[in-house]
Amino acid sequence: MTREDALIHYLFRLGDNALILAQRLSELVAAGPELEEELAIANFALDYLGQARMYYSMACELEGDGRSEDDIAFLRSEREFENLVLLEQPNGHFGDTIVRQVLFDSHYLLQLETLKDCGDPGLAGIAARAHKEILYHLRHASQWLIRLGDGTDESRARMQESLRRLWRYTGEMFAGDAVDDVVRDEFDGPDLAKIETRWRASLQPLLATATLAMPGNQWMHGGGRQGLHTEHFGYLLAKMQYLQRSFPGSRW
């Protein structure tokens, strides 16, 4: 693939991650443990949504086929989305949400740290903005991880269970393919092997402070990059795309 093809593909994947996570988070409106926290969750959703729009818009411009951010979000089918399957898992309780945030954001932040200095100024610009946002997300979610891990016996048990359940989706974050290789080599993009080491190194003390045990090595779920989703994804998409599919070609 060409340098540019890889970059476009990579941008779509970044956008897919952000969009699918925003979609899941927006389901949590009016369902938070405290009103102030609902505001925070809505904030996160807005940040991710904003990032998705930027990634998609840039990719569409480079692609030059006249597609828009909405064409990408509402008119592609299941196999065309390449988000991490971690992000499409249905929302559980608040602890699940926090664990998902910590696991994803701690990886995403490392990605963005590299990308904001990468060889493509467009992507670097988006990454610099996103980096500031994700710094805040991670700090906020990490503090919650600590509170809930080191809170009551019940909260610790719940958090440990969330970790156990979601851990199998983390391997995929570092299982790069040809697209990741080109972005790394041609654009000074993230080296996923190095990121994985740093990711673990950052998680270890955090989990320790939260009095939680890091789950052991295990079989890792994969497939996101190949558009191989879990069964949850079809339903998410059906909901998200319903109006555009019902009224083809309409303006909103």
């Binding site: 405290e34 509170r147 809170g151 009551t152 909260s155």
Partner: peptide, 13 residues
């Protein structure tokens, strides 16, 4: 659903 969260936050504090 949020009761365990609020309790945990208080216990931590």
């Amino acid at each position: 659903d949020g009761a365990w969260v609020r309790e945990a936050a208080q216990a931590y504090a």
